[in-house]
Amino acid sequence: MSHDHHNMVSVSVTVNGESRTEECEARMLLVHFIREKLGLTGTHWGCDTSNCGVCVVSVDGQPVKSCTMLAAMADGAELTTVEGLETADGLHPIQQGFMECHGLQCGFCTPGMMIAAKSLLEQNPNPTEHEIRDGLSGQLCRCTGYHNIIKAVQFAAEKMSASEEGASA
């Protein structure tokens, strides 16, 4: 195994609006970079094979499974993690939906689920139940049976479209 200087990389990202630069091994997975270098442990991991979606974060506006992306590949990117969902105005409608509709139990899949759901609603503000299920089909949850996750996303969709209407009125 070679150990030349390219084994280490410097990674600069904007995470939840904040600029950060950290050195890490080139092989460091983005999920570990976020958890261990950026100290944001709200992003979890659940498998090693990009099947469960627990580790999903937003990279340049797109949800990505951060267990299957190198931190080095995210250099220069804008990241949003669960910690970036809440703003000064309060919880994001997705967060409100998950609370109001009991869309979580153990909370372990929830951060990835919410980031994926947010992206789904950004692309399709008024999804059908089937479209929500399809859009979240890369996210596994072992507790909720998805029933209330669907409701949570519907809650958020309504809330977001209501506030859109409010804004345009």
């Binding site: 070679s2 084994n7 091994e25 080139a26 997975l29 090693d48």
Partner: peptide, 12 residues
Amino acid sequence: MQTPAPFGYERA
């Protein structure tokens, strides 16, 4: 978690 072995990284 499973982790890759070390490697050199280049960006094309």
